[in-house]
Nucleic acid binder design. Structure first.
Length: 761
DNA sequence: GGGGCCACTTAGAACTGCAAAT
DNA sequence: ATTTGCAGTTCTAAGTGGCCCC
């Protein structure tokens, strides 16, 4: 029955006729986009007639997407022109204070001579999590800091290092040379091979040359540019740097640290706090992720004049670099940034902010998890409701319900709209026709690029009603390029969520489900085995969460080889084991009859495998002795002692030759040489040991493979309530440092110190 | 009610330094 | 002692979501 009923609204729209069973227009109204006429309470959207509206939506997309694709070629004019909107500070200062009224006068600061010997004071005694933290519209009372570190001035390359154009060296003005150098340094990276990157770089490079008044030659063909001299020069520099003696390195580091010291911390309400990114980002080529239309563009040097500082009214303003002025000095205590500037790529804002271990970050982290925990009191109702709403007669509600389902079950992100000069990535609300493939009865294949252009690919079974709805959302006239969810966007969704719980938004679901999953997984871990074994299981739980959130990483370049290595090692162990078993049979033939199972694997390796293993061992042995010989002689040379005679090496290698012969023989006869004094018992012992090693190596290999594409850190840092890990460690007696690095322990200090072992998410 | 701006969290890549392997 | 692999850290891009303005 439901099928036709379900589809009512749309069928009405699409077919403009018949099949409509029910007049839904009334309820329909609110978001208004669809039904005809009669729209009591909503005026604005109401003029759309349903058909028209559909067409409109489609048209909108069609217009938009192709644009995106076209835009790639023709580019960026608008971007570079983007007018800098100077947010008049007066306006700003006006707007903010309005919410200030709530200022809590309690503010836990003691303000006791904080400036003095606060050296050690950095918050050690201050446990903000034991205080109330309801209102956070005001972030601080006093704020002092020392500004930011600018990257060093450009140092021109030595005169013999040049860009070659058409084979001939070019004298570039320093600025242009710097830009060429950015590319030169990246010559061997994937970026430099990306045509968009090249095009954008070259365009900006030409522009810079022009800005500098030219360089004698006209640089008009990227293909004729040869950056290898520059690349080699930087490579050389890198090597040089590596070769500096340890002592020298240490000294350099110490100097750097001393210089940076003042910038690393600031005073927040008189307490010392770490600053996160106190360095202004250096100029370079923009490394956009995925197919970013602007990748490769020049990210320009930030001047002090571009930088706005934010600090307390009474704080001393750090002096700007010699000969410069700050762009502005602000005293806005409703925000938590210390400095900001605007970057030239997308005209967006970059902030200098507190470090992750700061109280402000900690508090909002804590609130985030508390908010997610709150969701557990509502989730049942929410789920029940959206299951019902999946069948709503209102297209709007169906879309809301379906999107909520996807967000809840598959942990999709909200999916806000993106502009044409960003990579084409999507989340839930921005899913398009082509991202979802439906296979009856209820299989859905998702295939799209999400945040950071990470692919989301999953073939899953969904609720039958969800399947129907998706089918409905894909119905004609929609086609590739059209939004699946044409009635909703994250703000609609979030408004709906707020009706259940204040502060509930799409992203809370991700946090909730991640932490909930972690808890469920941890609950399954028995309290047995060594801490190391428990950590392995903890990591497996962590991995479940990472997979849920689709946190990926690119497989490291050494991965394949290193897997191969492990697998070779395993094979060799297997060979060893078989060999030992053969020896057992040589000692006692009857054993095979007694324990057939035990000897079943005797033929598991082919002759080729065995020969290969022999060869590897021989090679390894030879190398071992040669190295040993060399090392010994080097040592003797240093001590001015006599060298070992060549004959010594010969003797060693002779042993290997003998081994090689033995192996050859063994391969032929299938019988290894029996070591002296060997017994069945000894052999059994060795086999047992070997089996242990094989088991652990196999596990290790599996773990490694499973982990090669999954990033555990992102969920650990952002989604899994740290108190879960703390409780786990406490209860199961696992040292916390096995699961949290030092930085993480600092970041999660609030969790570590506030929780007892009965705590539940 | 939608666009733009702002402030903040979340994200994988790149880099670094250290420990295990050789 | 040197190399290598990797965990941990740093960097900065790319999201989310609130708020204001029209």
């Amino acid at each position: 029955m439901s099928d036709s009923e379900d589809d009512v609204v749309l069928s009405k729209r699409v077919k403009t006729n018949g099949s409509v069973k029910k007049e839904s227009s009334d309820d329909d109204v609110p978001l208004g986009q669809l039904s005809q006429g009669s729209r009591p309470h909503e005026s604005s959207a109401s003029e759309y007639d349903s058909d028209e509206n559909i067409t409109k939506t489609a048209a909108k997309k069609i217009k938009k997407k192709p644009n995106k694709r076209k835009a790639e070629g023709k580019t960026s004019e608008p971007a570079s022109k983007k007018v800098k909107k100077q947010p008049s500070q007066s306006a700003k200062t006006k707007t903010k204070p309005k919410k200030e009224k709530k200022v809590k006068e309690e503010t836990p600061i003691k303000a006791e001579t904080p400036g003095k010997d606060d050296e050690e004071d950095d918050g050690v005694g201050y446990k903000w999590w034991e205080n109330q933290l309801d209102d956070d519209s005001v972030k601080w009372e006093t704020l002092e800091h020392n500004g930011v570190i600018f990257p060093p001035e450009y140092e021109p390359l030595p005169s013999h290092v040049k860009l070659l154009y058409d084979g001939k060296p070019v004298d570039l003005p320093p600025f242009a040379e710097e830009v060429a150098g950015f590319f030169g340094a990246m010559l061997e990276t994937d970026h430099a091979k990306n045509p968009t990157f090249q095009r954008n770089f070259f365009h900006d490079f030409q522009k810079v040359i022009e800005e500098c008044g030219g360089c004698g030659v006209e640089i008009k063909d990227f293909e004729k540019c040869d950056f290898t001299q520059m690349f080699n020069y930087f490579e050389g520099k890198r090597l040089e740097k590596k070769l500096i003696s340890a002592a020298e390195k240490k000294k350099i580091k110490a100097e750097k640290d001393a210089f940076e010291e003042p910038y690393k911390t600031c005073l927040l309400n008189g307490r010392k706090e770490q600053v996160g990114n106190f360095r202004i980002e250096p100029p370079g080529l923009f490394r956009g992720r995925g197919a970013h239309p602007k990748t490769g563009k020049l990210k320009r040097r930030v001047q002090p004049e571009d930088v706005i500082l934010n600090l307390g009214k009474d704080a001393k303003v750090p002096p700007p670099p010699e000969g410069h002025e700050w762009g502005e000095v602000r005293h806005d205590n409703t925000v938590s940034w210390l400095a900001m500037w605007r970057e030239n790529i997308s005209n967006s804002v970059k902030y200098v902010r507190f470090a992750a271990n700061s109280s402000l970050k900690g508090m909002s982290d804590y609130k985030k998890f508390e908010k997610a925990r709150e969701l557990k009191n509502h989730i049942e109702k929410i789920r029940k409701d959206y299951r019902t709403m999946l069948k709503s007669n209102l297209m709007l509600e169906r879309q809301i319900a379906t999107a909520t389902y996807l967000i809840d079950v598959f942990a999709l992100r909200a999916g806000g709209e993106k502009s044409d000069d960003e990579a084409d990535t999507v989340g839930c609300c921005s899913l398009r026709f082509e991202h979802v493939t439906l296979t009856p009865p209820q299989t859905v294949a998702f295939d799209f690029l999400g945040k950071d252009s990470i692919r989301f690919y999953q073939e899953v079974e969904v609720d039958p009603q969800v399947f129907k709805n998706l089918k409905l959302f894909k119905r004609l006239p929609k086609g590739p390029g059209d939004d699946l969810f044409d009635r909703i966007d994250p703000s609609v969704l979030n408004k709906h969520f707020q009706t259940y719980m204040t502060g509930l938004t799409a992203k809370v679901f991700r946090t909730y489900n991640a932490s909930k999953t972690m808890q469920d997984q941890l609950d399954l871990i028995p309290n047995e085995g060594t801490p190391a074994e428990k950590v392995v299981k903890y990591n497996a739980a962590n991995r479940t969460v990472a997979i849920l959130c689709n946190h990926q990483r690119s497989v490291s370049k050494g991965h394949e080889t290193s897997m191969q290595k492990i697998s070779d090692r395993l094979k060799e162990m297997l060979w060893q084991k078989i060999r030992l078993k053969k020896m057992m049979l040589m000692l006692d033939k009857k054993l095979e009859k007694k324990k057939p199972k035990f000897f079943e694997e005797l033929d598991d390796l082919t002759k080729e495998d065995e020969a290969h293993i022999h060869k590897q061992i021989i090679i390894r042995e030879r190398e071992k002795y040669e190295k040993k010989f060399k090392r010994e002689n080097d040592k003797r040379a240093e001590n001015k002692e006599d060298q070992l005679p060549e004959s010594q090496l010969k003797e060693w290698l002779g042993k290997v030759d003998q081994l090689e012969k033995d192996y050859k023989n063994e391969l032929k006869t299938g019988k290894p040489l029996l070591p002296d004094n060997i017994t069945i018992e000894k052999l059994e012992q060795q086999i047992e040991k070997l089996e242990g090693r094989i088991a652990s190596t196999t596990l290790q290999m599996k773990d490694k493979e499973d982990n090669s594409q999954v990033a555990l850190s992102t969920s650990k840092i952002n989604y899994i309530d740290p108190r879960l890990s703390v409780v786990f460690c406490k209860k199961w007696n696992v040292p916390l440092e096995k699961v949290f690095t030092k930085t993480l322990r600092e970041k999660f200090k609030w969790a570590i110190e506030s929780v007892d072992e009965n705590w539940r998410f």
